[in-house]
């Protein structure tokens, strides 16, 4: 679980920080949430606690950056849709 969390955390960081503005933020968000769950559960195992903690931290940071773009894109699309319908 620790290794899986770390991999998902790094993937989420890449999607959120580097590719957030390119529409990959949805993937970063979902991957980040799964990474947080696996990281938190992985911390229960003393052998993989370090890896799991690293995965948890990476997943949280990736999730936060992904969320910023997901929410912002949602609003832009919503406002644009409303504007088009009211025309």
């Amino acid at each position: 679980m620790g290794i899986a969390s770390l991999i998902l955390g790094i993937l989420s960081l890449v999607c959120g920080v580097a590719l957030g503005g390119l529409g990959f933020s949805w993937i970063g968000c979902i991957v980040g949430i799964i990474g947080v769950i696996l990281g938190a559960l992985g911390r229960k195992n003393p052998e993989s606690k370090g890896l799991a903690t690293g995965g948890l931290v990476c997943s949280i940071i990736g999730l936060v950056f992904s969320l910023i773009f997901v929410i912002a894109c949602s609003m832009c699309a919503g406002v644009l849709g409303t504007a088009l319908r009211s025309m």
Binding site: I33, A40, L41
Partner: peptide, 23 residues
Amino acid sequence: VDYAFVVIAVTFLGAILGGYFVY
């Protein structure tokens, strides 16, 4: 706290999906 992290993460997922589907 570890289990709290899990519950909060699942809550996030539920909140985003719920907010999206109602919209």
